[in-house]
Amino acid sequence: MSKVLLVYASMTGNTEEMANLVEKGLQTEGVTVDKKDVIDVDLSTLEEYENIILGAYTWGEGALPDEFLDLYDDMETIDLSGKTFAVFGTGDSGYAIYCGAVDLLEDVIKEKGGKLALEGLKVENCPEGEDEDRSIQFGVDFAKALKVMG
Rank of each mutant, 00 (worst) to 15 (best):
V33K: 02
I97L: 05
K144M: 06
S10A: 03
V87S: 05
V41A: 04
K112E: 07
G100D: 10
K35S: 11
F68E: 05
G139S: 07
P127H: 09
K35P: 09
A101P: 08
I136G: 05
M149R: 14
Q137C: 12
V31S: 11
M75L: 14
G55D: 04
T77I: 06
K122L: 07
G62P: 08
K110W: 05
L80M: 12
E47F: 08
L46K: 10
E23L: 10
A96E: 15
T77D: 13
D66W: 06
K36I: 08
K147H: 13
A143E: 03
Q137M: 14
I52S: 08
T77Q: 15
A117V: 04
L54W: 06
M75A: 08
A19Q: 01
I52L: 00
D34S: 10
E47Q: 15
L26W: 06
E50K: 13
D73N: 15
I78P: 01
D131L: 04
E111D: 14
S10M: 06
K122M: 05
N14K: 00
L46C: 08
I136F: 12
I78Y: 05
E23H: 05
I39N: 12
E124P: 04
K122V: 00
G30C: 08
T15P: 00
L69C: 12
A63Q: 15
D40G: 00
E111L: 13
Y49M: 06
G60M: 09
M1P: 08
K35F: 03
L105D: 00
N125Q: 14
V31T: 14
P65I: 09
S93R: 13
S2V: 11
F85W: 10
E23P: 03
S135R: 09
V4F: 04
M75N: 04
P65E: 15
Q27P: 06
V33W: 02
D34K: 10
A145S: 11
L105V: 09
D79F: 03
L69N: 13
K110H: 05
K35H: 03
L54T: 02
G129L: 02
E76N: 15
G89Y: 09
D79A: 08
T12V: 06
A56H: 03
G139F: 01
V87D: 05
I53S: 01
M18K: 02
G100H: 07
T58N: 05
N14G: 03
D141I: 02
A63N: 15
F142H: 00
I78S: 08
V87L: 01
Y8S: 04
T32S: 15
V102A: 07
E124T: 00
E16S: 01
I78C: 11
V33H: 06
C99P: 10
T15C: 08
T15F: 08
D73I: 09
E124A: 07
E111R: 12
L80S: 12
